[in-house]
Every structure is written in structure tokens, then in C-alpha cells.
């Protein structure tokens, strides 16, 4: 079981309180009516599925119900960094 430090509750809590919410930094297209089917497919379905350090979203479902971003190794499951949602990350390793 993972332990997450919720950046809003400022506490370490058990994984049961949280839900995984997919890869981070996938922005909705700014001009939805103008982009191609390929771009829509990329946004909706295609994923990096990175083997290594992976930025992803989690939500504190049974707590503050807020989303935050986590850098976690998909090889060792080690949680390397936790930031509030919307934090700009310069080095995107995924």
C-alpha cells in the first residue's frame, strides 16, 4: 500500500483514501473544433505509458477530494515527488 503526502491536507495518508487519475499534463485541446481526428485520438486515448519515473494525477477521494500530481517510479513504485495540481514542472521526464 502506498503512503501519499497530500499537499492540501499536509499529512501522510494511506492509499485507500486516494484514487489514481491517469497521466499528468494532458491538456484539453485549446481549439477543439479545429483539430483533426488524429489529434483527438492522441488527447483522448494515446498515452505515454512510461517505464520509469512517471508524472501522474491522484485525487484524495476520501479526504479533501482535490487533485494533485505525483512523480512515481513505475518500476519500483517509489514516490519521488508530490505537488499541488497546476504546479509547473520544467523537467518532464515522461
Amino acid at each position: 500500500m502506498f503512503l501519499f503526502y497530500c499537499p492540501y491536507c499536509k499529512e501522510e495518508r494511506e492509499q485507500n483514501e486516494f484514487s489514481a487519475a491517469g497521466e499528468a499534463f494532458i491538456a484539453r485541446p485549446k481549439t477543439p473544433e479545429a483539430i483533426s481526428d488524429e489529434d483527438w485520438a492522441e488527447y483522448v486515448f494515446y498515452r505515454t505509458n512510461h517505464k520509469g519515473n512517471h508524472w501522474e494525477q491522484w485525487v484524495h477521494t476520501n479526504g479533501c477530494r482535490k487533485y494533485f500530481i505525483v512523480k512515481r517510479s513505475t518500476i519500483s513504485h517509489e514516490i519521488l515527488q508530490v505537488e499541488p495540481f497546476g504546479t509547473e514542472i520544467s523537467e518532464q521526464e515522461s
Binding site: 498515452r47 505515454t48 505509458n49 517505464k51
Partner: peptide, 18 residues
């Protein structure tokens, strides 16, 4: 499970998560 890793070697992406 490693399909995305192989796809990346060929410069492709897949609609898959492991």
C-alpha cells in the same frame, strides 16, 4: 505489458496503459 516500450523504440505511441 511492454508493448508501449517496444512501440517507443520504433517512434510510435499506443493507446495502452500497463
Amino acid at each position: 505489458g511492454h508493448s508501449s516500450v517496444l512501440a517507443k523504440m520504433a517512434g510510435l505511441r499506443l493507446p495502452i496503459e500497463s
